[in-house]
Design a protein around this nucleic acid. Structure first.
Length: 569
RNA sequence: CGGGGCGUAGCGCAGCCCGGUAGCGCGCUUGGUUUGGGACCAAGAUGUCGGAGGUUCGAAUCCUCUCGCCCCGACCA
């Protein structure tokens, strides 16, 4: 490719709308341009990256035996009514009417369509298992699109659906997909982790998310550096402390803590560790006889609302007036002592003795508090908090660390949620009609581009993994217009590399050196060959890797060998 | 949907408080000088000041409505 013929459109300054680095760089490098909120055009340069990601995904899916098809982006409402999602899905589902006033949706996902096809096509166990996938543009009318291509409304996704005669076969395919995804993300050159996930609204049981690790990720992941345990923080279990509670040594006493509301402040004032504090969170349970209750957590822990919901039922946080009514005290100094309200006590609180909690009296806390003496020993302890770094790993092999990730893949065992709703069944060996077992497997193709950049960038711009860079090599002639020697040699090198099968672009724009260097570093092409008159006089050119600090001077005759060694080792 | 912020040239911004008909940097065009890290000099072009309505002799500036974008929260894969 030649730069003049191709389209290079870089920006010195990032448009103000871009918040995170990958979004800024994608705009600056001219990979994408915004058309509307959460809707982006893929410019030629960006499309090359997208296509490379797509090609790797497609190759590995095919290798795993899945078969590609292409389903309609526009789907009739009837199918969604049949599955029940017409009602379930909120405004995120983009609905519209055609000229005959019939309802349609722009597909955010394709379970209904594929299940409809399979129920029409597949009649016998002999035709199972099947795995169909597509790479399609989807639309989800996100409440708050942001981060460019990472949470856009329109996005490119690979979605695969497998159909099985029994659960064991689904589990087999699920394991195969787990392995296939691992291969895909490895080939893409991404740092990632497979994470046990909640199955969310899509239902079903087994589910893993694949996350690209990045500080800007929207999801918190708890993982164990010493094993392969990893889970969404929402899901990771906080184990009960192994240490026995120590015997009480202090007497219960009231301490003045005027104006100190936060646990950290109280701990500092009293000169104790924040782990000696117990915080009380006032909630109101929807379906309980006496709705008002307190959740007790250690001062340094945060409530996990997902876990709490499972234990106490649906709830909301109590309003200040409700707290005053129930405890006679405003939030900030509330505690479990001297009240009859229901208590839900976290496991880590169980191990505490001589702790500090609110006195239910403004400006005062209680210290030296002990279970069994100052308040009743709770009948149960629960896992109510988010895990924190250093907690023991639930698999018993070391301790947890927390990192953030960008979800780029998700695999589910759907079981029969859709096959049942849409009556997708087959005749078994014994001639009995049976509902199929389903799996579904997604990869956010366009999101991967953003995630890769989020993971690979420096002060100069994007540092693409070689597998998905828009070009593998750029040939930069210095003085292309002026020096015939440079031009001829650059063209010769370009021709040679192209003939050798490399994905190479020559910068024939005749720009100043600084402009070209800055552009290609911004764009993130992994390998650069600079050809200038100065070097040619010695019979040399310059090679520089995008990740390398310094350039290498190389004799013209040895360039091909060096490139071969760098790119196809 | 709740809270906050911002819409002025392709991009980044100033001007708005205190009303007098729009400016800076980058980019773009032309000419010249330059040419191994985003050149310099000169001359240019580019604006329904997001839109509609109102107040006023006069509105980018004040008021009302509206549209769009961004951030935080709620919600969600």
């Amino acid at each position: 490719m030649r730069a003049r013929q191709f389209y290079i459109s870089t920006l010195k300054e990032a448009p103000a709308e871009a918040e995170i680095i990958s979004h800024q760089l994608m705009l600056r490098a001219g990979l994408i341009r915004r058309l509307a909120g959460g809707i982006y055009s893929w410019m030629p340069l960006g499309l090359r990256v997208l296509r490379k990601v797509e090609a790797i995904v497609r190759a590995e899916m095919n290798r795993a035996g899945a078969v590609e098809l292409l389903l309609p982006a526009v789907q009739p409402a009837e199918l969604w009514q049949e599955s029940g999602r017409w009602e379930q899905y909120g405004p995120e589902l983009l609905r519209f009417k055609d000229r005959h006033q019939r309802d349609f949706v722009v597909g955010p996902t394709h379970e209904e369509v594929i299940t409809d096809i399979v129920r029409r096509e597949i009649k016998s166990y002999r035709q199972l298992p099947r795995h169909f996938y597509q790479i399609q543009t989807k639309f989800r009318d996100e409440i708050r699109p942001r981060f460019g291509v990472m949470r856009g409304r329109e996005f490119l996704m690979k979605d695969g659906y497998s159909f099985h005669a029994d659960f064991a076969d689904l589990v087999r395919e699920y394991a195969l997909m787990h392995a296939t995804y691992t291969t895909i993300f490895t080939r893409l050159g991404l740092g990632f982790r497979a994470v046990a996930a909640d199955t969310g609204s899509i239902g079903g049981s087994g589910s893993h998310e694949f996350h690209v690790l990045a500080d800007s990720g929207e999801d918190a992941i708890a993982y164990c550096p010493d094993s392969d345990y990893a889970a969404n923080v929402e899901l990771a279990e906080a184990l009960a402390p192994t240490q026995e509670r120590q015997a009480a040594t202090e007497t219960l006493r009231e301490v003045e803590t005027p104006g100190k509301i936060k646990c950290q402040e109280v701990a500092e004032l009293l000169g104790v560790g924040v782990t000696k504090l117990v915080k009380a969170i006032a909630i109101v349970r929807e379906a309980a006889e006496s709705p008002f209750a307190l959740i007790l957590l250690r001062g340094d822990h945060d409530l996990n609302e997902v876990k709490a919901q499972k234990i106490v039922g649906r709830f909301r946080f109590a309003r200040d007036e409700e707290v005053v009514e129930a405890l006679g005290c405003r939030p900030g100094y509330i505690g479990p002592i001297g009240t009859q309200v229901a208590l839900f006590v976290d496991r880590s609180v169980a191990a505490l003795s001589d702790f500090v909690c609110g006195a239910n009296k403004a400006g005062y806390h209680l210290a030296g508090v002990n279970f069994g003496r100052d308040l009743a020993e709770p009948q149960h302890y629960f896992d109510l908090r988010n895990v924190v770094a250093g907690d023991p790993s639930p698999d018993g092999r070391g301790s947890l660390a927390i990192c953030r990730g960008i979800e780029v893949g998700h695999i589910f065992q759907l079981r029969s949620k859709y096959s049942e709703a849409l009556k997708c069944s087959f005749l078994s060996e014994t001639g009995q009609p049976q509902v199929m077992e389903m799996g579904c497997y997604g990869i956010g193709v366009s999101r991967i581009v953003g995630a890769a950049i989020e993971q690979g960038n420096d002060g100069r711009g994007i540092v693409f993994p070689a597998a998905i860079a828009p070009f593998e090599i750029v040939v930069v002639p210095l003085g292309y217009g002026k020096s015939a020697a440079v031009r001829e040699e650059a063209e010769r090198v370009y021709g040679e590399l192209a003939a050798a099968g490399y994905d190479v672009i020559i910068d024939d724009r005749d720009e100043r050196p600084g402009v070209m260097f800055a552009d290609w570093e911004l764009i993130g092409v992994p390998h650069r060959v600079v050809i200038g008159e100065r070097g040619l006089k010695q019979g040399t050119v310059e090679y520089q890797g995008r990740r390398e600090q310094a350039a290498t001077i190389v004799a013209l005759a040895e360039l091909a060998a060096l490139i071969g060694q760098k790119l196809r080792p």
